[in-house]
């Protein structure tokens, strides 16, 4: 039978079941239940829960654990993710897998503690300095939070890069029924690049992001970007809901996609051909799904809990071939289905 779990706790349990035994964190609302859950579970299964002195230290502990070859993760909320940016950039530059969870709250600055999607730009464009991307997955239900955790670990390992789950305070705090996967069996395969002691059996491994020779650095960044192209080709994910004949295509992810879905259903009841494209991967951005839906749409409507961040990627994905409109709230405010419906009606 399904169990009723808070999103934050479901993320933690899913990580454990995906074979993660090393969690490094720091308390911040609204993600703290995740860390608290880990502090309860990890000691009982021989894992590591460590409350670091800061988010900066936590992400660098993840860097160290990942460099040693184990599955490692950290979680935080918006202001804390800013602090983790340094470590994320270094992990990207060192080709290290890791899972970072952002349970977003309102910003900028200390902002608020209510749900928000104002870190889209940060997650998809600039978690830290330098030429790099991270994988960004955006669940919209507690069940999907569970499902995406193991996918995020697998993708991070496969492509040797950090992966982020971009959630928000609503998803983190809410309870929904979930079915949890079986505990992962054997530990993931040995990582031949890891700094875990060579035992005299191989040359020493160096986990490093420093390349003082520009042509060497360029070569490595280009190699990484070639990998990113592969990811864009193979890993785009989106849900297309009533989108194949929609005149008005609503585009929303995470919590706001739930609001949008409600509005789309109401619009259909009223005879309006509305549909929803829900990006599940925010990077790589699901341009293919967007283009399919946009090809016959009259208008697109992007719904976000921000002043409009993903809307840029929507316009780029469809090369501005159709008008793209915006509906959003910010600062921790959540749009209502009625508000979205009103805009759908205006655009139909």
């Amino acid at each position: 039978m399904k169990v009723l779990m808070k999103g934050n706790e479901a993320l933690a349990e899913a990580a454990i079941r995906a074979g993660c035994r090393h969690f490094f964190g720091y308390p911040i609302t609204p993600q703290t239940e995740l860390a608290a859950y880990m502090s309860k579970r990890m000691p009982k299964i021989g894992g590591t829960y460590l409350q670091a002195e800061s988010e900066i230290a936590a992400v660098n502990m993840v860097l160290g654990a990942s460099a040693a070859g184990v599955r490692a993760m950290t979680s935080s909320s918006s202001p804390g993710i800013s602090l983790k940016g340094e470590g994320i950039s270094y992990m990207a530059g060192s080709d290290l897998p890791a899972l970072i969870i952002n349970v977003q709250r309102g910003g900028p600055g200390l902002g608020g503690i209510q749900p928000s999607q104002a870190d889209y730009w940060q997650a998809t464009k600039a978690t830290g300095h330098g030429d790099f991307q991270i994988l960004v997955l955006a669940p919209s239900t507690v069940q999907e939070m569970v499902d995406l955790v193991s996918d995020a670990f697998d993708l991070a390992d496969q492509y040797r890069m950090p992966a982020m789950i971009l959630a928000d305070g609503m998803l983190g705090q809410m309870m929904e029924p979930v079915s949890l996967p079986e505990e992962a069996g054997a530990a993931p395969a040995q990582k031949d690049w890891a700094a875990c002691g060579h035992g005299g059996k191989r040359p020493h491994n160096i986990v490093n992001s420093l390349y003082l020779t520009p042509d060497k650095l360029e070569e490595l960044v280009k190699e990484r970007f070639a990998r990113y192209e592969q990811i864009k080709q193979h890993e785009q994910r989106a849900e297309e809901y009533l989108a194949d004949d929609a005149d008005v295509v609503v585009v929303a992810y995470g919590a706001s996609s739930r609001v949008a879905r409600g509005a789309v259903n109401k619009a259909r009841e009223m005879g309006i051909k509305a549909g929803l494209v829900r990006p599940i991967t925010l990077w790589p951005f699901p341009a293919d799904a967007l283009n399919r839906a946009a090809s016959h749409a009259k208008n697109l409507l992007v719904v976000e809990m921000s002043m409009g961040q993903m809307i840029d990627d929507v316009k780029l994905a469809i090369n501005c071939q159709k008008p793209v409109h915006f509906c959003g709230r910010t600062g921790g405010m959540i749009p209502t289905p009625a508000q979205v419906l009103e805009q759908i009606q205006a655009l139909a």
Binding site: P30, I113, E176
Partner: peptide, 9 residues
């Protein structure tokens, strides 16, 4: 289908 969402803070 169910959901439970608390106010928090």
């Amino acid at each position: 289908e169910i959901s439970w969402l608390p106010s928090y803070g």
